[in-house]
Computed example of a mutant assay.
Amino acid sequence: MKILIVCGAGASSTFVAQRVNRAARARHLSHTAAATSEASLATDIVSADLILVGPHLASRVEQIEGLAAVHGAAALLLAPDVFSDLDGTRTLALIEETARDRLT
């Protein structure tokens, strides 16, 4: 699954993406996460299966969900404490839950 993590400038989402990738590798999962900025989202979304939206973009989540739907992707707002998920396991659990929900 290709996961795109979006934040305002792409900086904080880079940390989340790195942690998710590390957690996925530790579990031998083929998920890949990449960071993007809000400005680059329209270009980067084309290849994504799931968009994780930084909590500071909560006011834009409905617009991002609409954009994701056009491309056949899901979008989820991340919890405000996502940046304290230092090993990425809680975020990876959210990704896996979303994947299960989409398949059932």
Rank of each mutant, 00 (worst) to 15 (best):
S12Y: 05
L41C: 13
A39C: 08
D85C: 01
V82I: 14
V16G: 07
R90A: 11
H28Q: 15
R19F: 03
E38S: 14
V82Q: 02
A26V: 04
L4W: 06
A35C: 00
D85V: 01
L67D: 12
I5S: 04
R90G: 04
A79Y: 04
F15W: 03
L57F: 08
V20W: 06
V20P: 03
A79M: 05
T14C: 05
R25I: 05
A33R: 09
E62S: 15
A23F: 04
V82N: 01
P55R: 06
L94Q: 11
A58Y: 10
E62A: 15
G72V: 02
A33E: 09
S59L: 14
A9F: 02
A11I: 15
A24P: 02
E38Q: 14
H31D: 03
G88T: 00
A93V: 01
V82L: 07
A75T: 08
R27L: 10
R27M: 08
G8K: 07
T32A: 12
R102Y: 03
F15Q: 05
A69D: 15
L29N: 00
A17T: 04
A79P: 15
I95V: 13
A79L: 06
R19W: 03
T43S: 15
H31N: 02
V61S: 09
A33V: 08
E65T: 12
I64F: 10
T89V: 03
H71I: 01
H31L: 10
T91P: 00
A93K: 09
R19V: 01
D85H: 01
S40F: 12
P55G: 06
I51M: 07
D101E: 14
P55H: 13
H71T: 07
